[in-house]
Computed example of a mutant assay.
Amino acid sequence: MTNKNLEVQSLDVIFDRMVEVMDHSKKDIFIISEQSRQSFEEMKVELEIIRGNIETVIIEGDSLESKSRLSRNRLAEVSKNFDSYEEPQVRSAYETANEIQINLLIKRNEERQLRQRRDELERRLQGILEMIERADQLVNQVNIVMNYLTSDLKDVGEALENAKIKQDFTLKIIEAQEEERKRLSREIHDGPAQMLANVLLRTDLINITYQQRGGDEAMKEIIELKEMVRNALSEVRRIIYDLRPMALDDLGLIPTLRKYIMTTEEYNPTCRINFQTFGEEQRILPNFEVAIFRLVQECLTNGIKHGKFTEASVKIEWTKQKMNIFVKDDGVGFDPKVVKEKSFGLIGMQERVDLLDGTMKIISAPGRGTSILFSIPINKE
């Protein structure tokens, strides 16, 4: 075995060990993050209970305050006209005033302790939230480094000998992949995860509602809880569909696009999308079908989110040599020269088109909608 092979093997062992250590670190950070989220939800429930207790204690304290004023007035009257009252009446006035005053002090002390606990919980919740955000950032950073190590630097000795491998696995592609993971993480956190957290909170509050306001009010909470679960399930299904439509492998590009457009209109009832195809449809390479589907998806998503269109059209033309995709909407439009360099979505589409050896042309202006034309060669091996 040559010294060169020994050096390559040694480098591979080092990188494998680095990846293993970072993977363990990522899992540890993830566990801490999940435990923090669980503590966060538990403290939110406790905070709601304490806020309710504070409201109850304040009402009871105000009632005792009124009784204390009346008892003091009675005591003042008895003291002023001491000779007119019998000893039991005088003793009763003093004992009543003293008992009410003691109960009032106890109640005010209880209110003070509850307020301190509430303030402490609010500070801890803010601290835990910041910890969760930092943990998520650390996980994302570790993911970027791990992807770089496992994709670009795996078998680093051979990679150094082959410049093409280094070009194929560029840092820009890794960053694009990680951006997609972050987008998915945000969707799950802001959608199903948040809904499920609310479901957990509502289940704890239903018991309190039943005890304090009865079965009818608790049943209303249960009905709302059921609707929240239904919405969470719908969000999960939408996210799964966005990751990769299963129909793309089974039915092909055109049927999948039709279904996607119908689904998009259902989720956005104020938008209308017209879909047309021209020429003889055919199955093309799977990676081409996925790329073209993502291009159309990105155009419509940007048009709805940023362009705010009400009508759009998607036209696909098949020829022997290439496939032309034309997406047009009546949205607010933009200046391509200003936006293109700052838009991650447009940069991602251009990179996807470049990988397919195709071309992309954008026609848009503020207030005049947007038209995007893709031309993709489909006769290549």
Rank of each mutant, 00 (worst) to 15 (best):
L121M: 08
R368W: 01
L248Y: 09
S84Y: 10
I206Q: 01
A232H: 03
T256S: 00
C299D: 12
T170C: 09
Q282L: 08
M18S: 11
Q113H: 14
V327F: 02
K26L: 10
R134E: 11
T310G: 08
T277C: 02
Y94Q: 03
N162Q: 09
A247E: 06
S63P: 13
F169E: 12
T150D: 12
M349F: 07
D250I: 12
K172S: 07
S63D: 10
S375T: 14
I240M: 07
E341V: 08
G61W: 00
E224G: 09
S92K: 01
V353P: 01
H189R: 08
V290N: 01
E7T: 06
L248Q: 13
M43Y: 02
K337V: 15
L105N: 10
E341D: 14
A291H: 02
K182E: 06
A163Y: 09
T319D: 01
A176E: 11
I254D: 02
E317P: 02
N379E: 05
R115S: 03
T209M: 08
R294E: 10
E111A: 00
V57A: 13
T319G: 01
M195P: 06
E351I: 09
E351K: 13
C299N: 05
L205Y: 01
N53V: 05
D329S: 04
E48T: 15
S234W: 10
K340R: 13
I376H: 01
C299W: 04
S39K: 14
K305S: 05
K27R: 08
I54A: 11
R69A: 12
E265W: 00
M1R: 04
P245E: 04
R213L: 15
Q126H: 13
Q38K: 10
L11Q: 09
R118Q: 14
Y260K: 01
T209P: 06
N5V: 14
I49V: 10
F374N: 00
A93F: 01
Q9W: 05
S63A: 15
T277E: 04
I362M: 02
F288T: 05
G127T: 11
